[in-house]
Structure formats: C-alpha cells, structure tokens
C-alpha cells in the first residue's frame, strides 16, 4: 500500500507545482512507482512543467466521472516508465469533483503506486478540500516572505482541522546572500513561527526557470543547486537521513573583500 502526499501552500506562486514535479521525478529516479495528480481544475500546469502537455487525452474529471478507465487517463512520463501524471481538466467546472470522489480515487491509486503526489491549487476552497481529502501526509511549501508564511500558517491550521497532523515544511526560493545581509528571514525564523518540522530548503536558482522552459524537472540536472535540494528532499521522503545542503554564498565580491580585510563573513 502506497502513500498519498499533498503539496500545498495557501498562497499562489510559491512553487507547489515545481515542487510536485521535482519530488515526483526524484522519487521515480530512485525506482519508486509514482503518480502525480494535478487538482487545479481550470488552471492546469503540472503537465507543462513536466513537458507532457502534448500527450493529454483524458483528465481527472473524465476519470472521476467514468468517461474513461482510470488507466487511460494516466500519462506515462517520457523519462521514467514508473512515473505517471493524472492531469487536471482545463475546461470543466471547478465543482466537477467532490472530496468524497477524490478520496476514493486516491485509495485506488495507492494500491498500485508507492507514492501518490497531489498538487493542490492555491486557496482554501473546494480545490483545497479535494486535494487534501485522500491524503495521508501533507507538505507545506512557503517562501521567505511575510505573505507566504502567513498563508502557510493558515494552511497548517486547516490541515490539522482536516486531521492531517504534523505536516512538514519546504522553504522555497531562499537567497542565502540576502539572509546573510539580514534582508531575508532565515530557516530558523520560519520554523519558530510556524512550529512545524522542516523537510527541506530549496535555494533560488535560475536553472529552475531554464528547466521549466524545457519541461525537464531540475531534479535531473546535476548542475542545479535547487535540483540537489530536491534530490535530498526526495530521499528524506523515503526515510533516508540527509543533512541540509550548505547554503553559504561566499562567492560574492563583497564577501571576498570582507575576507581580504579580515572581517567575519
């Protein structure tokens, strides 16, 4: 029996879909059988991030309403045959899916897959309730900004109300150089405020833009710093203990000058 993990955040644009794509691909590259579900009906995006947008025939709503068999709606990944995507419907009504149906769907999928990774839409309405309905665990994604952390706090409260206790946190788009200058909240600040366990930290990385342009998850790019962070997070999900990557940004000119003058960097 597999495990259903929902990736959520409250606020939009913090990297839920990127995180879903990278974690799922990371787990698949470790040989796990993985399926991703995009639950953002009307605003689907996981398909383009994965580079699978041209292969969609059926979608989540088709599978739930019985317009096709569940197997027919699952799109096989190009890179890993043990990775599949169940895309969201783009043109159907948001209310086409209800939490009870999602629960049933997740139940079916986890009989066959090691991991069912659910990409949750932004917001706290029906889409959120659908995405969390069948989940065993939750991962909350935030960025080091007041607005994103505030929404994460609200989401953690709602997850607990939905009996999804002990969610873990991914801090995305951290800029170590700004943290060092005191112009960005650091990991401990956010852990203190939100009082949840840290699953991983993903540094800001231009290669994420490049990989999204190409439809190839950064987790497969051995030169990408963010990709390394996602590889570590994937390993932690399987229970492996991996230390946090060192986020020392000591390559800048200023820190070189500081070192030259003997200041503590």
């Amino acid at each position: 029996m597999g495990e259903v993990i929902v990736i959520t955040s409250g606020k939009g644009g913090v990297g839920k879909t990127t995180t879903t794509a990278n974690i799922s691909t990371g787990l698949a590259s470790m040989g796990k059988k993985v399926v991703m579900i995009d639950t953002d009906i009307g605003l689907r995006n996981l398909d383009v991030v994965m580079g699978l947008e041209n292969r969609i025939v059926y979608d989540l709503v088709d599978a739930i309403q019985g317009n096709c068999r569940l197997k027919q709606a699952l799109i096989k990944d190009k890179r890993f045959e043990n990775l599949s995507l169940l895309p969201a419907a783009q043109t159907k009504d948001k209310t086409a899916v209800q939490p009870e149906q999602m629960k049933e769907l997740c139940q079916k999928l986890k009989e066959e897959f090691d991991y069912v990774i659910v990409d949750c839409p932004a917001g706290i309405e029906l889409g959120f309730k659908n995405a969390t309905a069948g989940a065993d665990k939750a991962i909350v994604v935030t960025t080091p900004e007041v607005s994103a952390v505030r929404d994460a706090d609200r989401i953690i409260g709602l997850l607990e109300a939905a009996e999804l206790r002990n969610p873990t946190l991914i801090v995305n788009r951290l800029r170590p150089s700004m943290v060092k200058k005191g112009d960005m909240m650091d990991i401990n600040d956010m852990i203190d405020i939100l009082a949840i366990e840290l699953l991983g930290v993903v540094p800001e990385d231009e290669l994420i833009v490049v990989s999204t342009n190409k439809g190839e998850p950064a987790v497969l790019d051995m030169h990408s710093w963010a990709g390394q962070a996602y590889r570590n997070i994937s390993k932690r999900i399987t229970g492996e203990e991996v230390p946090l990557i060192s986020l020392d940004a000591d390559s800048g000119l200023v820190s070189k000058i500081k070192k030259f003058f003997g200041f503590q960097a």
Binding site: V146, R150, D153, K181, G182, D183, M185, D189
Partner: peptide, 18 residues
Amino acid sequence: SSKNIAKERLRLVLVHDR
C-alpha cells in the same frame, strides 16, 4: 534589518489570524 521588520510584522499578523 528588514528581516526583523518582517518577523515582527508576521508575529503580529499571526496573533490576530490565530
């Protein structure tokens, strides 16, 4: 530092939210 301003504002807004 602006980080401390962010933390303080966040602390206050969460007291109210919660």
